[in-house]
Amino acid sequence: MDYLKAFIVGGGICVIGQLLMDLTSYRVTPAHILVGFVTGGVALSALGLYQPLVDFAGAGATVPLPGFGHLLAQGAVRGVRENGLLGAFAGGVEAAATGIAAAIIFGYLVAAVFTPRGE
């Protein structure tokens, strides 16, 4: 059951991204989708709307980029509660550190090992 929920919610979030790209101006590029979805995830999380989705759909909500924003926002909130104002700086980055570091490290290593194929 949790697989089905992950599939439908995760797929649904991607469909929103697809509609935003196809139905709006050409100015909405993939880069804008990435930035918009992370920021949107932060906002939804701050309003308390994203945690219920994570509870319901699991990876269907954490794997799409709003989940990344959710992680950042929840980290910042937790950081403030534990360490005061300093936590607003460190909390978000701490919570999302694994994903960010993994992307940079694997990105660097792949770039060092592989050559681009082009078309």
């Binding site: 992370v38 932060v42 980290g75 005061g84 607003a88 700086f89 909390g91």
Partner: peptide
């Protein structure tokens, strides 16, 4: 850009919480 917007918006959320 993704990290910049993510960090800044999360920091604002933290600041609001504070």
């Amino acid at each position: 850009p993704v990290l910049a917007y993510g960090f800044v918006s999360a920091w604002i959320v933290g600041l609001m919480t504070y």
